[in-house]
Design a protein around this nucleic acid. Sequence first.
DNA 1: CATGAATGAGCTTTCATTCAT
DNA 2: CATGAATGAAAGCTCATTCAT
Lengths: 192, 192, 192, 192
Amino acid sequence: MSTRREATRRRLFEAAVTLISEQGFGATSVDQIAERAGVAKGTVYYNFSGKAELYRALMEWGVQRLTDHLNVAAVGPPREALANVLRTELEFIGTHESLARLLMAEAWRTRQSWYDTVRQIRSGAIGVISGLLEDLVAEGDLPGDLDIGVAASGLFGMVLTVALDWRTLQPERPVEEIHATLVRLIDGFLTT
Amino acid sequence: MSTRREATRRRLFEAAVTLISEQGFGATSVDQIAERAGVAKGTVYYNFSGKAELYRALMEWGVQRLTDHLNVAAVGPPREALANVLRTELEFIGTHESLARLLMAEAWRTRQSWYDTVRQIRSGAIGVISGLLEDLVAEGDLPGDLDIGVAASGLFGMVLTVALDWRTLQPERPVEEIHATLVRLIDGFLTT
Amino acid sequence: MSTRREATRRRLFEAAVTLISEQGFGATSVDQIAERAGVAKGTVYYNFSGKAELYRALMEWGVQRLTDHLNVAAVGPPREALANVLRTELEFIGTHESLARLLMAEAWRTRQSWYDTVRQIRSGAIGVISGLLEDLVAEGDLPGDLDIGVAASGLFGMVLTVALDWRTLQPERPVEEIHATLVRLIDGFLTT
Amino acid sequence: MSTRREATRRRLFEAAVTLISEQGFGATSVDQIAERAGVAKGTVYYNFSGKAELYRALMEWGVQRLTDHLNVAAVGPPREALANVLRTELEFIGTHESLARLLMAEAWRTRQSWYDTVRQIRSGAIGVISGLLEDLVAEGDLPGDLDIGVAASGLFGMVLTVALDWRTLQPERPVEEIHATLVRLIDGFLTT
DNA sequence: CATGAATGAGCTTTCATTCAT
DNA sequence: CATGAATGAAAGCTCATTCAT
């Protein structure tokens, strides 16, 4: 049944991601989103309780895709798995640039209605990395007293920052070059 | 002279930093800023040509402080200078949390009138790190084919992410603990 | 035949009376009515041509019940008949509070599409009282120069106001107490 | 000082009374009110927090005028005072028809944000009548066991209904005729 | 008979900006 | 220098109505 409704929601998500990532939440009007999605403005309100709820749902939808990708990549021996995960993060951002910008821009904004959603989202993504770091500690590849939470957050942020700078300043460079530099940074860390 | 005017401007800056960092530019109204600063709304327009100009001036004001701090820290032998710079970045974010959040949130937003200001700001901060990495290459502490731009961006983003996660999730932890973990990550990289 | 349809219409009436009497016509949405009646929104439009038509039909349905009650009570010697009618009005309002509120609220609003319907309704109810006052004049119980229209309107309004104040402010009081006070007021009038 | 603001508020009140009494709260748009008052739409929101608040303030403003009039009339020996008060009510409604319709129409609507204001208002007006009835009881002109609250509500409602029917159906009749009939109804009651 | 997703006109509300004081 | 009442364009949102199923 309600396949139609699902399709409409997806079209709204896709329209909203691009617009909001470019202009920000406040500068993007519901009119714009509806027009880009090819539906009437009222349809937005039929499917979501308001603009903020559309935004919240949008982030949930988008981040689930990132977490899914990372989880798929997090297999095999921990070292390879970690390299895989970070490369996947890099590639994902290259492919879903809009979504990544949006998450980055709003992740640090407290006192917004969607703050909790954003935090949960980040935790999910960083959690994948934390898990692998724990495996590495268990195997003796990392010192037992390492603060895993901080380290995972740092790795995640490093890749994210590099990826967005890449897309923003030098989008013509191939992903391999960026990845190679990242691997160097991380390898040093792992051989400690 | 015009000390009164200067005082008014500073009060407006201080009111604006907090509000905008928490709520974002779009969600913060001129009314709110004026009220928090304890002046009438018209006074904002007497001191700035408009909301956007207030925002631009605010970012310039704030970022100059960050760059100044980093430059002061970037002295001495490169290795120590780098550690110093990253520690200073960490501390600065701890002390000027609002400003850091604000810069982070807007840094990735293209198509905004203040985009150029933000990019310039980031370049200034990352430039300090790039300079030190170049020194390290020159001294043979880092391989000559390292992509310095990417590496500097990565280090900067790592510290920024860790710092904001720290302030957001575990603000009670002392800065030393966070710093120690960061140094470990970076040392590994340098010993490669 | 069409028993199902009749049942649906009645459910819509009952849902609408309560909601509109509490919130007013304008503040009550078709969504609310449909939800309270337990049907889909489209069903309202399948059974009525629109919201205004539903409202008109609702008032006709409700007022016919009031007039019927009053006519039944208006039998016997004029004095007893009058007392009976006023008591019936009081009781009817106690039992059909929502409907009474609704009629009262809309009765004084000119320039509405249903204004004529409402006036007709009031005329019907007040007409029953007028008839009895004429009988009393004929029997010499009231002076011949009494303005019957004004008097009937006054009696009707007195009972209506008392009844609604009773239901609103002291709903726990028994109808007899209210009625007793009303009879005193009216008796004085009749013995003049 | 803010005389200007006061003047604006009064103009909005005067515009709103007429429109709302004719069309109802829901059917009257803020645009209409602003246009009739000769101010911009935004001015409504600068002076009131919203449409509902304008409405609430409007009723408070209007009813204060009624209560003031009634209180002025409630002087002298109780019998004359009562006759005076009821005549004043009648005249007030003749002069401020819009306001009276509006109060009547909304007085019975529970579950509205302005419900409490309306109730308070009615209590004020009816309170003047209650006070006089108590005086009459004290002087032995009325039986000591009379339910004064119910009686006052009845008298108030009688005059209100008569007055509005007069304005609606026979506006050309002089107030004296209507008043004379009312006095007859009430005199009977007092001689009991 | 009934449904509920979709519509869009029209509404309420917000807010950057202006300007007389 | 500073104020705050007023503005109006533009936004968010509601809801009676339509229609394919």
